[in-house]
Structures are given as structure tokens and as C-alpha cells.
């Protein structure tokens, strides 16, 4: 497993060169944006249950066949497995966001995930859709772009200092896209 720092070390070692110049500039921005990053991770972890249940609910609303007899979220046992997997995916994304590198997500979550889903008969289209909804709500929470209209009665705004979080929103979005790309 690597983080943003060890990633630059591993790539510098491949060239037998010390880490300097432009590599360090990237790491300095990680450091200077550190508090924002921790707030972003906190935005995901504090709302994890909401993000996951909302995503699975949305996925089923769009495709109600999933909870009818023979559907992949029927009965409760399989619905529970679905919620559990959503939480696991979100957890590894929060690790990747904290580390600033996707290797933990790749190594411990995505490697072999698609093959497992195919073997178990899980519809990967639906799984990808649930992750896409998680992406929408997680990035809205990180960037504080969610609105009472889209949030309904579960609307929540993180009370963090106002600032430009676009880079972190993009980074988090990239990790969600990575999951979607890996299962679809």
C-alpha cells in the first residue's frame, strides 16, 4: 500500500534519483491542503450510512425488479449483502482519499471484484449505478454543493470553513470512477 509520499518515492527509486523539484511541489500541496483533505474524509465517514443507504435505495427505485422475487436484492439477506458491499467500497474510497493514492483501493478492494461479482451473479450494471449515486452524494458533501431541494429531509451541510475544494472533489470523484470502471 502506498500514499502520496511513498508513491513519489517508489517512482523516484525506479529512476535511482532523489525526490526533488516538481515531485516535492506536489507533496507540498498535499501538506498545505491537508486540513481540507481531512475534512473531506470526515465528510464521507460521518455520512457513510446515509450515503450508502441512499445509493442502494436509488439503485432499487430505478430498477424495482431487484426487490421482486428472483431479483438480486431479494430477500433481505441479499439486500443486506448489497448494503454491506456499498459500505465496504465507500470505506476503501475513504482510505484512498486519506492517503491521496488509489493503491489501497486497487489492492484491497477492486482486484478481482468484478470476477467475484460475475461468479456470484451480481448485476455489475446495478453495482456501478449504486457507486455512481454514492459519488454524487459524497462529492456534494465534500464540496458542500448539496441543496435542501436535492437532499430532502435528510439534507445535511458539513460545517467546515468555506474554501476551494474543487481539487479534492475531483480526486474523490476519480476514485469513485475507478470503482465504476473496475466493475462495469
Amino acid at each position: 500500500m502506498l500514499d502520496a509520499f511513498s508513491r513519489s518515492v517508489v517512482s523516484a527509486d525506479a529512476k535511482t534519483a532523489p525526490v526533488g523539484g516538481t515531485d516535492l511541489a506536489g507533496l507540498r500541496s498535499y501538506v498545505s491542503q491537508g486540513n481540507k483533505r481531512l475534512d473531506a474524509v470526515n465528510a464521507i465517514t460521518s455520512n457513510a450510512s446515509c450515503i450508502v443507504s441512499d445509493a442502494v435505495t436509488g439503485m432499487i427505485c430505478e430498477n424495482t425488479g431487484l426487490i421482486q422475487a428472483g431479483g438480486n436484492c431479494y430477500p433481505n439477506r441479499r439486500m443486506a449483502a448489497c448494503l454491506r458491499d456499498g459500505e465496504i467500497v465507500l470505506r476503501y474510497i475513504s482510505y484512498a482519499l486519506l492517503a491521496g493514492d488509489a493503491s489501497v483501493l486497487d489492492d484491497r478492494c477492486l482486484n478481482g471484484l468484478k470476477e467475484t461479482y460475475i461468479a456470484l451473479g451480481v448485476p455489475t450494471q446495478s453495482a456501478a449505478r449504486a457507486v455512481a449515486i454514492m459519488k454524487a452524494s459524497a462529492t456534494a458533501l465534500i464540496g458542500e454543493t448539496n441543496s435542501p431541494a436535492s437532499g430532502g429531509k435528510r439534507f445535511r451541510k458539513m460545517e467546515t470553513t468555506q474554501g476551494d475544494c474543487s481539487a479534492l472533489v475531483a480526486e474523490a470523484g476519480a476514485y469513485f470512477d475507478r470503482v465504476i470502471g473496475a466493475v462495469a
Partner: peptide, 17 residues
Amino acid sequence: SVVTTVVTAADAAGRFP
């Protein structure tokens, strides 16, 4: 590193950071 140690411990416990 500090971050990977933290993540490894959190992952072993199966919890969010």
C-alpha cells in the same frame, strides 16, 4: 508511513477512518 499505518489498522478493524 503514518498514513499507511493508520489505514492498515482501520482496515484490519473494518472501520472508517
